[in-house]
Design a protein around this nucleic acid. Sequence first.
DNA 1: ATGAAAGCGCTAACAC
DNA 2: GTGTTAGCGCTTTCAT
Lengths: 341, 341
Amino acid sequence: MAVRRVTLGDVAREAGVSLGTASEALSGSGRMTETTRTLVREAAQRLGYRANALARGLRTGRTRAIGLHVLNAADNFDNEYFREFVAGVADVAVEHDYDLNLLSSNPDRRRVVSPQVDGIILPDPLATDVRAIELLDSGIPLVAGERLPPGMPASPVIGIDHETALARLLDHAYAAGARRPVLLAADEQSGWGVVLRDVFARWCAEHDVDGIHTPSPFENGRFLVVGEEMVGSLLTRHVDVDLLIVPGEHAARAALRLIAEAGRRVGRDIMLAACADAHLHEVLDPPVTALNLTPRLLGATCAEALIRHLDHGTVIEEVTLLPAELVTRASTAPLAADCRL
Amino acid sequence: MAVRRVTLGDVAREAGVSLGTASEALSGSGRMTETTRTLVREAAQRLGYRANALARGLRTGRTRAIGLHVLNAADNFDNEYFREFVAGVADVAVEHDYDLNLLSSNPDRRRVVSPQVDGIILPDPLATDVRAIELLDSGIPLVAGERLPPGMPASPVIGIDHETALARLLDHAYAAGARRPVLLAADEQSGWGVVLRDVFARWCAEHDVDGIHTPSPFENGRFLVVGEEMVGSLLTRHVDVDLLIVPGEHAARAALRLIAEAGRRVGRDIMLAACADAHLHEVLDPPVTALNLTPRLLGATCAEALIRHLDHGTVIEEVTLLPAELVTRASTAPLAADCRL
DNA sequence: ATGAAAGCGCTAACAC
DNA sequence: GTGTTAGCGCTTTCAT
């Protein structure tokens, strides 16, 4: 099982030089005859030498790996948003020859070993996530991929300009006749939820509109179950709701069904929109308006900033916000004249 | 930037014991007074000690991380199949407190450091993938998540029983009137492609059916571009095609559009099915029949086997095949009587 | 230009 | 029961 690995010592012996020389020859550093260098290179090649990353890391304090904190892999991968974020990070990591470590994360249990990574990306930090807090406190270079909820240790953040995006969505729906909006969004444990709540409240006040905000569990496949009664009771309690804003594609799909079951029709007497776009929205019936949060770009930007910091010491800005784009589809078509408040 | 980390030496000094004692106290091994043990534990707690995984790994030869080889992260994450696979692996890794390393993989360049993982999962090995071959040869415990294409170094495999599944799909379509099937599937670089090709050929021979097999690029979002002319020309060259089998959801969606553009109607004069199911198939119009390859289960099974091997030395079977389920939907409804060959 | 040697933080074998 | 020590494979001074 344990294969005897070829070490640098083996290479040095094979090449007839000392350990230190072999090391420098391969790393390309320092002063050296081209002759010895190629000699060592050939020996390494011949033996199939591959440096032991652990030993190197122990010595240098660098691992050439970045960590991606994942709170609950199974649920998170259900979201296109998260998948795209990971893809963006992975893309950039590969490009810079960094490994990507999905940091295992049972939220209840503290880590007993420190993660063997040079830097960490923390997508969608949650206030209740013990491990995330641990990572924030660890002193390892870190960038949060979305704003931090209140109460968490500070950190550089790269996030989305939800303020502008949500306002634009609300404006769009308002123009189409919506006067009684409901926002189903992540709760205050997430920075996303906090921002959306605030923007929504402010917008409603400014437009003298009586909006309803209902914190909902984080968007994923389970929304189908959890959201069921939430949306159902909403629609029966507030029969005049004419705009339902849900977190993402799973909720949108569920909402579409629930709205139909409530005897209402999206595109005629009620609108539906999602805060995070996904391909699924294009094929739903009707297609669902959403905010394109450019998660792949966001992930890539986080990784880019982190790696640049690690490789060149570049300082990461305290807060960077990327714009989001409103993608309008049939689900927010103007209400029929006889359905307007 | 580089934070002075707390080492085991610090803990030992704080607790007033020696290094070795501190180590054993924390790892819970061997003989020891409860008193000293708690003494050390408390000191570690007080100092916020976190073991250095690198040093431990160097010493023990174990890292408690498994590697997942990803050929092209961006493309792969487009597929529900792959995402689910990763989610399954991640789930099990977390459960056993293993970290999951997405092994960065520029296929053209050899790795210069050996991956710091105890074992490797190789989903969908491709014959052309230099890094995959390298990993197979590395001697690191490995399990392939799908059968290996011919010519690759041997390895334990956990895959899907595509033989039974595809035959079942073909039988189903045959019963619904299909007599002129086309299989668009991965090419011979992938084990999946090879199996599908063989099964398809055998089935066609047995049923005296004139099937067409066209190797296609691996299923992902780019199918929309690549598959366009492929499907288009197929439909014009062979106007009597009455069953189109595509790799996955992206191809299915594209095919639906292309078939419509060719003036034909799925569910009436032509059938459509996919080799790998996805949620998208449920919401397409019409919903698309597909084989549920249970990718999450497959990923989990791979991880389970690998970790059991690493933790307990359990031998991994040479080949394990998981069953796939045929999920029939409207896209393979019986052909209208006047459209049958 | 090259060799020798120290030491990164940890575990395990061996003294006491 | 606990302390001492060697050494995992590597990089990096410091001599030569």
